[in-house]
Design a binder for these strands. Structure first.
Lengths: 338, 338
DNA sequence: GAACGTCCTGAACACGTGTGCATTCTCATA
DNA sequence: TATGAGAATGCACACGTGTTCAGGACGTTC
């Protein structure tokens, strides 16, 4: 006999197993004295209830499936950290699965979650493509997206937590404009991510507000990674009239840009100002330290999980929560030199 | 009716539910023709078997619990990535839980895994304290440790995957000694981690082999994080005769050391050589690029999971697997200047 | 002393799947 | 045609928990 069951306890206590079940769930239906005795016996036998059997009976697994595009992404890792913590606090466990942005794998992951009868699904930073939404909705399970990278197809059953990209982006631009910069470039991402689109929108709004012209040649695209950021920066430097400040879609792009600048012997921030986005740990250890936008990553994960738990308790929640980023001014920005 | 069950299929196919069960598991006991018809009906009804019910019947959940000290640690995140991938490949799902090195939480996590009847438990980079081992062994479930930070208390039922710290460490030292360094310092960790002890042992072995004296003042302790690394470096710089090369317990410590050196205007590697350990992504984006030891992080995770799966298939496996690190020489090491 | 209400307990069943065993069906052989 | 073997199927139960309902024990009231 591998595990002790409530029947074993029942035998030892000379009662029936439903009584044990009730005693252990502190039901008022069982006499205090008996309940106490049963609980003592359960403890002495080292009883641990089977979540499996309980799930089968109650049709709730207290389990959340979390899909990530990559766990190795430090941004996502932080978010997951908050997700797991909140889940644990409420007695939920998380199934972690990464899709690697691979459609086949995404399908397998969702099927796996379905078979395991998760109570809800959390998706971080995914594009939730055409393929994905019907699959998910078919499960009839609450879904919360974190930093959704798709316009907005909430049919009412999809909830989300995202950062207010436009606001954060205009704040970055206000900072640069306030320092006196006039030729400000934007290094974006390539894939048409929603966050990229919004940050670019903020960039343009701020330019318009300051009555600066929007110059298409100052918007170039990387790939969200250092390689692409470096290449994008090279293209900016090759312009007849290069920018004096560059706002990058994310810190990884900024890292690549920084390396390219190092390679050209261009001093940051004396000759060129650089801003990132995300405030990854690495941003505090570059030289110069990177000015960037901090997102409350752990908190976003926690909020997403708490929305989920509310939904599962049938407490309705706000559909789309926007959190605010915070501009962290470090050493990579300064007034232009002339 | 939320989910379709094999009974629903049985009704539609006018057979009994055991026949459906057998047909869907490709049992040879059911006639090919009938099996095909049943599978078609199952597909058309969108049937997904309940892993819960199956687990209850078979007493195997195809589920692995993974305990980490922190998901936000980039090293661990990479390991987990390999773990999850291997698990997915074999039809297993992973429960992720972080302990934050908090004993209360550790206990809760293990209990949670126990109740969920996981088939096995994976622990990364944990100290597996006195509290922990009996708890885990009590579950009578295979356990695989990754980078275990505790001497060795494998009572036969604990398996592990670790890096060969001593070998990697002596290789680092051979590199530095080969460059001509004679005063080489070691910035260690504080907690008495096994990996720290072993890397220090490799340091001493290499010194002995080269017939250099071991100087206690050249061994200082940080905390495995940039702050501690920086402070440790400050102490080394304050010595009457500072080292010409510094070998750091890990990249995070090296990062802090590098900042301290920047602060003092000491050029790396011209005036002082610096080596890290782990080859975190960040090591490729510092300036200068950090010479360090690369560990096959994802692969280690994958191997650990594959050992686990072997164990669950009753195929015995090597108890302790050691993988080799690789010295990555980048820009932070050079011959001493005099 | 009977009727009634309250409090507690146990019997029976449900959840969805897997499996040992008995049973039926099919077909070839005697 | 009867018999047997072997293939195909169904019956019954198990897994561990929760829940509904019926019923027993006990005390109170008329």
């Amino acid at each position: 006999m591998q595990h002790v069951s409530i029947k074993d306890i029942a035998r030892a206590a000379k009662v029936s197993h439903p009584t044990v079940s009730r005693a252990l769930s502190n039901s008022p239906l069982v006499k205090g004295e008996t309940a106490k005795r049963i609980r003592q016996i359960a403890a002495s036998l080292g009883y641990r209830p089977s979540a499996i059997a309980r799930s089968l009976a109650t049709k709730r697994t207290k389990t959340i499936g979390v899909v990530v595009t990559s766990i190795a992404d430090p941004f996502i890792a932080d978010v997951i950290s908050g997700v797991e913590e909140a889940a644990n606090d409420h007695g939920y466990s998380v199934f972690l699965a990464n899709s690697n942005a691979n459609p086949d794998r995404e399908v397998r992951v969702v099927h796996s979650f379905h078979e395991r009868r998760v109570d809800g699904i959390l998706v971080t930073a995914s594009r939730v493509g055409a393929l994905y939404v019907p699959l998910l909705s078919q499960l009839k399970v609450p879904i919360v997206l974190i930093n959704n990278q798709h316009p907005d197809e909430t049919d009412g059953f999809i909830y989300s937590v995202t950062i207010d990209n436009i606001k954060a982006s205009t704040e970055v631009m206000r900072h640069l404009i306030g320092l006196g910069h006039k030729r400000i470039a934007y290094i974006g991402d390539r894939g048409g991510f929603q966050s990229d689109i919004e940050r670019l929108a903020g960039y343009r709004q701020a330019l318009a507000f300051a009555e600066y012209p929007f110059l298409p040649e100052l918007v170039v695209h990387g790939d969200g990674k250092p390689e692409g950021g470096g290449q994008a920066m090279e293209r900016l430097l090759a312009l007849p009239n290069p920018p004096t400040a560059v706002f990058c879609y994310n810190d990884m792009s900024a890292l690549g840009a920084l390396r390219a600048l190092h390679g050209h012997g261009i001093k940051v921030p004396e000759e060129l100002s650089l801003v990132g986005f995300d405030d990854l740990a690495i941003a505090s250890y570059t030289s110069p330290l990177l000015t960037t936008v901090s997102q409350p990553k752990q908190q976003m994960g926690r909020m997403a999980m708490e929305i989920m738990i509310k939904l599962l308790s049938c407490i309705d929640s706000k559909t789309n929560i926007k959190v605010e980023g915070e501009l962290i001014v470090r050493e990579s920005t300064a007034p232009p030199k002339f």
